[in-house]
Design a protein around this nucleic acid. Structure first.
Ligand SMILES: [Mn+2]
Ligand SMILES: [Mn+2]
Ligand SMILES: [Mn+2]
Ligand SMILES: [Mn+2]
Lengths: 228, 228
DNA sequence: CTAATCATTTAGGCTAGCCTAAAATAGTGA
DNA sequence: TCACTATTTTAGGCTAGCCTAAATGATTAG
């Protein structure tokens, strides 16, 4: 009857569970279902249950978990998740700015490295980059203390009527889309004219760039804000 | 009776076994004992035997191994070991040159990262650094094809009589020694006056730096070459 | 209110990589 | 050559993190 399980809580896998809970919980930190986690992490639901039980029953638990009711990060879990997110986005910025990686390749490389760097490395690249607040996808980089400015933006898919916007951020998880958008000069900070039609959005960045027909299914990956 | 074992041969642990065999086998690629490997890797001898059996019985084996007679790298194993060594030394150079790490800290960080970078990352930092041939400890960086120039140097401990030499390289594995040597301006490429006494060596670098009394036990970590 | 469906957990298994203890082999020197 | 010692291997176990299949719990439609 191993009740007070002694769990090794510093693994790549644990990091990834915490990051996934942070991402799926959204800004309101809603509770996240096993199935959603299983899908995001590419593992079986049973594996998720197993891990959640471990994370919840550790000595200082990373999550609050109740059977059948989903899971939330504990304060400690949130701290760790934000730390890994900071690693991730700093590494992405670094790969993009210093090592000249193409934007669509930085995510996968960061996804591995984020788990294996020490504070010193983080501190050195942050310094080298001038303590950036935004990564190359337009996402906010959490500060050392875990604070992160709320983003004042909306998914492109929620646009109600045609208009002009500024590109806020683009999801880092779809390399192909990132490449396409880049080819149309649709990058964070760019001005964007949006025209809605039943099944797609038509996007135009600068004068020189061709209009892009974007399926609605892809429009969740782009966030916009107003042109002040 | 699982004879043709299907082994996953791309793990950090496997990398570390191969690197250790490369290092312990020396330039003559002598066969390496289980005990020596166990000691170097900080695992039990039984664990080594187990891993060697796996590495030797894979479909394209990384080692040639005979019970009780030690182990050598196969051509494939040597290729991989040199690849990881290249990663390691490129990362060290990069941490030192680009991120301004202190010399005595680069090794530990590289020791982890070397297993988790892709070709692209290797290629980018090599380019950024101008395809260096020598790392900050003075060690040769294997080329992409695995070739590595022989080092024309000798361990300081083999010095027979007093004289002047050039510091060739310093072992990366002893951070404390690296720091001490640095404080006495004893770094790769520096000129060095060596005076032998029964139990120690006295080392003097430039005029400004204080003489360093080095125990013989530490003198294996430094390699020297003649002043042309 | 009940039955079908869907989500989640439990149970049982697997591999990698480590461990310890016991057994076997090799090497050495009397 | 034979016994003693040191090295190495075998045998058996453990944890982390996955898996599948079966069982259970929650939800919803009739
Ligand atoms: Mn990313
Ligand atoms: Mn990750
Ligand atoms: Mn090193
Ligand atoms: Mn290593």
């Amino acid at each position: 009857m191993p009740s007070n399980r002694q769990v090794n809580i510093n693994t790549e896998s644990v990091d990834n569970y915490l990051k996934a809970i942070l991402a799926l919980g959204g800004p309101e930190e809603q509770s996240v279902s096993s199935t959603a986690l299983a899908q995001r992490l590419g593992v079986a639901p049973a594996s998720v249950t197993n891990m959640l039980q471990k994370l919840a029953s550790a000595r200082s638990p990373f999550v609050e978990y109740e059977k059948h009711r989903g899971v939330r990060l504990s304060p400690e879990g949130k701290r760790r998740a934000l730390e890994v997110l900071r690693h991730h986005r700093l590494i992405e910025t670094f790969l993009y700015e210093i090592l000249d990686f193409p934007i669509e390749e930085v995510h996968d490389e960061a996804e591995r490295l984020e788990h294996f760097i020490l504070e010193r490395f983080e501190e050195r690249i942050a310094a080298k980059l001038g303590h950036p607040k935004i990564d190359p996808h337009g996402h906010c980089i959490p500060a050392l203390d875990g604070r992160m400015s709320k983003q004042d933006s909306a998914p492109l898919i929620d646009v109600e009527k045609d208009g002009e916007f500024v590109v806020d951020s683009i999801s880092d998880r779809d390399a192909k889309l990132l490449k396409t958008l880049k080819a149309h000069s649709i990058t964070p900070g760019a001005h964007l004219r949006v025209t809605k039609s039943p099944h797609e959005l038509v996007l135009r960045a600068g004068k020189g760039s061709k209009p892009l027909h974007l399926a609605l299914s892809a429009a969740g990956a782009v966030r916009i804000r107003s042109t002040n």
